[in-house]
Simulated scan of single mutants.
Amino acid sequence: MNRRPPTLATGGMVASSHPLASQEGARVLADGGNAVDAALAMAAVTWLTLPGQCGLGGDAFAVVREPDGAVWTVNGSGYGPDGGTTGFYRDRGFDAIPLDGALAVAVPGAPAALAALHAQGASRALPELWEPAARIAERG
Results as ranks from 00 to 15, higher is better:
Gly69Trp: 05
Ile97Leu: 09
Arg4Asp: 06
Gly121Phe: 02
Glu138Arg: 15
Gly32Glu: 02
Ala41Trp: 02
Gly78Cys: 11
Pro98Asp: 02
His18Thr: 05
Gly93Asn: 04
Asp37Ser: 02
Leu103Ala: 07
Ala39Lys: 04
Ala43Arg: 05
Thr86His: 12
Val105Gly: 09
Glu138Met: 06
Phe88His: 13
Ala106Ile: 01
Thr10Met: 10
Pro81Trp: 10
Ala115Pro: 04
Gln53Phe: 13
Leu8Pro: 02
Gly121Asp: 02
Met42Asn: 00
Glu128Val: 10
Thr85Phe: 06
Thr7Pro: 00
Pro127Leu: 05
Leu56Arg: 07
Ala113Val: 05
Tyr89Glu: 04
Gly140Val: 12
Ala106Arg: 10
Glu131His: 06
Asp82Thr: 12
Gly76Ala: 12
Gly121Ser: 03
Val36Trp: 01
Phe88Glu: 04
Gly33His: 01
Gly52His: 15
Gly80Cys: 03
Pro127Val: 05
Tyr89Cys: 02
Val45Phe: 01
Gly101Val: 06
Pro6Ser: 07
Trp72Ser: 08
Asp91Asn: 13
Met42Gln: 08
Ala102Asp: 15
Ser16Thr: 15
Asp59Trp: 10
Arg90Lys: 12
Asp91Trp: 00
Arg65Phe: 01
Gly121Leu: 01
Thr86Gln: 12
Ala134Ser: 11
Gly80Asn: 07
Trp47Ala: 07
Ala125Leu: 00
Glu24Phe: 03
Leu50Glu: 14
Glu24Arg: 14
Glu66Tyr: 02
Gly76Ser: 07
Pro5Lys: 08
Arg139Asn: 08
Met13Thr: 13
Arg124Cys: 00
Val74Ile: 15
Gly109His: 13
Leu126Thr: 04
Pro5Ala: 11
Arg3Gly: 14
Ala30Thr: 13
Met1Phe: 05
Pro5Ser: 11
Leu99Val: 11
Arg135Asn: 09
Pro98Val: 10
Gly121Arg: 02
Gly84Ala: 13
Ala70His: 14
